[in-house]
Amino acid sequence: MADSMVGGDVHPYEAMGERLPDAAVAAAVRTQVGVRPDAVRQLSGFVGNQDFLVTTGRGDFVLKAGDAHAVLSEAWACERARAVGVPAPEVVAVDADRDTLPLPYLLMRCLPGGPIDDTDDVDDADEALVAAGRWLRAVHEIEVEGYGLLTASRGPDGTWGQVRGRESTWADVVAHPLGRLPDLVAARILDESLAGRVRAAFAAGAGLLAYGRGGVLLHADLHPRHVFAEQGRLTGIIDWGDATAGDPAYEFGRYSRAGDDSLALVLRGYQPDRDEKFGRRIVLYRVLWSLYALTWEYAAGGDWFAGHVQAVRDGLRTLDA
């Protein structure tokens, strides 16, 4: 995201500017895998990325170009998840220093199957979501230093080093999008009345979001379109670009945007410890994630605001009920 909006401390993505030429993408992939691509097709996605499906005689790949910190953090998250058995994408190559393209990128091997929200077989989709919940528990066993979106450090000699959360406390992670509310109001994305209701809800629920333990790895953008399956078998969890260190409940807050029934399936696989305030905590985190999404989208020059604003309104309505 652009530093003009977030002061460089909320999300590392920057608006991507001009589209990478297909020929340049093909040349970079040929350098990395040693075979000439048969086809290159740009994929839709967040305005802060450029994603391409690249077909070759040695399989299909996704090239994802973006900010160097985001590229390195996503690669690290995929590798850590795969190390504990989670079916995350295999990262074939990372170029954070723009040696083979004008933008940093990672290259991943395509996973079999497809998004469960594209299937007509409800039972197959349900089984995959339960399995995804089980794997999330394994992800949440991975300890990560710091809190918030992952970032990669760079030493004085220019080499890339440790990946960690960008913030010192989870309270800082919760506070950041609340601090961006004036910008969203000034841009007429939120009105002042709605911003005031957000502030009041988080002031009242501050104790619910107090997280005193060390951060663990979160996918932090889990959605049915990021869960892949084939014939009822979970084949992958993709798009780790928003990987975060923090409170596992935040994961469920984000996923709850998919609806109560879908969340129930993930929770069935995960089997979380629940107290009487679990549901309210999830709703607060749903609103928090939606506020982050608004700030990221605005800062990157996008315009996908309506769904996130409605999620904020719906969440506040649930909290008020």
Rank of each mutant, 00 (worst) to 15 (best):
Trp135Ala: 06
Gly148Met: 08
Gly17Cys: 06
Ala186Arg: 10
Thr318Met: 04
His308Glu: 06
Arg199Ala: 12
His176Trp: 15
Asp60Tyr: 05
Ser44Phe: 09
Ala300His: 01
Leu129Phe: 01
Ala187Trp: 09
Ala26Asn: 07
Thr31Arg: 14
Arg137Val: 01
Leu43Trp: 07
Pro115His: 10
Ala293Asn: 05
Ala39Tyr: 06
Asp314Thr: 07
Trp160Tyr: 11
Val6Ala: 00
Ala28Trp: 02
Gly212Met: 00
Pro104Asn: 08
Leu217Phe: 08
Val216Met: 07
Pro224Ser: 10
Leu20Ile: 13
Glu18Asn: 06
Arg281Tyr: 04
Tyr147Ser: 03
Ala152Ser: 13
Val185Ile: 10
Leu106Gly: 06
Gly148His: 06
Gly315Ala: 03
Thr318Asn: 00
Ala300Val: 02
Asp3Gly: 07
Pro112Asp: 09
Asp99Gln: 14
Arg30Met: 12
Asp191Pro: 04
Arg180His: 14
Ala195Tyr: 10
Tyr250Thr: 05
Val29Asn: 05
Ser262His: 12
Ala81His: 12
Tyr298Asp: 00
Ala131Val: 05
Val174Thr: 06
Pro248Phe: 05
Thr55Asp: 11
Gly214Ser: 15
Leu288Arg: 02
Arg317Thr: 11
Asp183Thr: 14
Arg82Ser: 11
Leu136Ile: 10
Glu127Leu: 11
Gln42Pro: 07
Thr151Lys: 08
Glu141Trp: 05
Ala65Ser: 12
Val173Arg: 09
Ala96Thr: 09
Leu217Lys: 06
Leu150Gly: 02
Ala243His: 06
Gly114Thr: 05
Gly212Ser: 06
Gly85Met: 02
Val92Trp: 07
Asp247Tyr: 11
Asp303Trp: 02
Leu218Arg: 03
Gln162Thr: 14
Phe202Lys: 01
Phe202Pro: 03
Leu101Phe: 14
Tyr147Asp: 09
Pro156Gly: 13
Gly301Leu: 04
His11Trp: 05
Ala300Met: 09
Ala203Ile: 08
Gly279Gln: 12
Ile116Glu: 01
Gly207Val: 00
Ala258Gly: 08
Val84Glu: 09
